[in-house]
Design a protein around this nucleic acid. Structure first.
Lengths: 297, 297
DNA sequence: CGTGCTTTGCAACAACTGTTTCATTTATGG
DNA sequence: CCATAAATGAAACAGTTGTTGCAAAGCACG
């Protein structure tokens, strides 16, 4: 790629660049495909710097202006495109890859299929129903064990970030399900488990149901022990070409629910996030150098 | 490629096109790479037709104007081919859905694009390198905070499941980074953080590096504070149509690494899992009824 | 605490973008 | 051969492009 040298040079001098130029440089590094395809102003807008900064960065790199730099990226894109001219080549290429890359891209292909499943009408509406429940109820308890714990944790984190009252029921310190002690009809329980189903999760669901709480179940089958207990059941695929199962679809469902809840809360969610970030900043949780102020993309 | 359908259609109606339009169409067919990279006027000049002809040809193809056609070619250049392939369909479909389902399927579409990015050659090889490191080193420490914690947790869980020596460095009980106290050259640290970067994670990486440990970084940019510290750096996309970021790609990378490590360990990994499951069964961790014996998918 | 230098954002710039209108030419069918 | 429609090219259009001049702010150094 002919933009590779540019990227390298950019990386080399990156630390010596003034802050705004670093922000711009970061865009070039992170979105090489877009440089030639978007107008400079458009890119400037996306990064959050004035157009002039783009031109200046290009000039600093020794080019006449941003247009010349764009030309370079265009050339590299052309080369790249020719290289990838045919899809068939790519497939052949894959077979030729060593086992590692083959396994990995098989796994990714599988997941891509799973994503399609998630966008089926039944799943979409189940997700929407789950979001409804979260919005309606006062508190949300989240539970998930073993591989499902990561999803449960993310659910608790994201939803509390956008201002929901959430409680993560993990077993830290062996307190087990004590967190659920005062769960009631005004609360909801988001439970996630896939085969082989974890006992505590199943029991937590049963318990929460007795108490009149609304259940949101994320699981792998309609006959999963928690599926029929729930007010909203979301079935996620878990198969992979490896003998390990995947929880990625489940995690994605969590993110979808969070996005929906955020959308419904609207400004309230935005200000909750802002407050959370202020809080974190005050305690110096974030790493800062003059470089990375904003979020790219 | 998303310009393929255009090319096909162009070819089909070519003979019925008026002479000047044929000339223009020939350009599109012969120089698909340039369509998105050159201005329409420039292309018109090269072909020898007035600019208007270009616009008119595009309109004849059903597009609003040449700009829209350019957009299609741009998408195909980016490699997001699939993503834009059924863009119009998707847009129509989306309009028909209520707001909830629309947002959700947008999110899923975005993720689908991210998956493609993950299967790029550079990412694949970075993942393979990461797996190498895990296999080579004696112990693997995992760290990730906030939204990245779920990925770190899953990494620690999966890899210990298949028999790797793993330590999850979370801050439970405020012990902070004590877990890293005795990290050394024979160990590896898998660290994950996305903007805004969490201070402890960045510091943990710096510390581990001083101690001579190998770093595997999963982050969102080449200029992330941990990217250049690492022996293997995997860049994951995090953007979504919502204002929340996604960690799904990162989680998927984790699963890929785990799958690769499992593959390399071979039988050893399988027996490790079997042992772990026996262990769990003995302690009654799993829920059982006559219904659910095996794993559904 | 200034001094000189760099960095930054704004506003104005001319050049160029893609589109459209309209008069003219060319082809087509009765 | 004319009448009608289609195709064409020139010119004008508003909008956007990338660039630059300038003033204000920020910074390091003495």
């Amino acid at each position: 790629m002919s933009d590779a040298p540019i990227a390298e040079r950019l990386l080399a001098i990156f630390d010596d660049l003034p802050p705004q130029h670093q922000v711009a440089a970061r865009w070039l590094l992170d979105h090489p495909h877009d440089v030639a395809l978007l107008s400079m102003r458009e890119q400037a807008k996306r990064v959050g710097v004035p157009p002039a900064t783009m031109t200046r960065l290009a000039q600093r790199l020794g080019y006449d202006g941003f247009e010349e730099l764009k030309e370079m990226y265009a050339a590299s894109l052309r080369g790249h495109a020719e290289h990838f001219a045919g899809r068939t080549e790519k497939l052949l290429q894959r077979r030729a890859l060593d086992g590692d890359a083959a396994l990995t891209s098989d796994l990714l292909a599988d997941l891509s299929g799973h994503l399609k499943l998630l966008s089926s009408a039944t799943t979409l509406s189940a997700i929407a129903r789950a979001a409804d429940i979260v919005v309606e109820r006062e508190r949300l308890f989240c539970i998930g064990a073993r591989s499902s714990f990561s999803s449960a944790h993310l659910a608790a984190y994201l939803l509390s970030l956008i201002g929901e009252q959430t409680v993560l029921a993990d077993g830290a310190g062996s307190i087990g399900l004590d967190a659920l002690r005062d769960i009631g009809p005004n609360d909801a329980l988001l439970a996630m488990t896939i085969a082989p189903y974890t006992r505590v999760t199943v029991e937590a669901v049963a318990f929460a149901r007795e108490r009149g709480a609304s259940i949101i179940a994320i699981t792998d089958s309609n006959v999963s022990p928690i599926a029929r207990q729930a007010k909203a059941t979301i079935i996620v695929p878990t198969s992979t070409p490896s003998f390990l199962q995947t929880v990625a679809p489940a995690l994605i469902v969590i993110e979808c629910i969070a996005a929906l809840v955020a959308a419904r809360r609207g400004k309230k969610a935005v200000s909750a996030i802002a407050a959370a970030e202020d809080h974190l900043e005050r305690f110096g949780s974030y790493y800062t150098d003059k470089t990375n102020k904003g979020r790219t993309s």
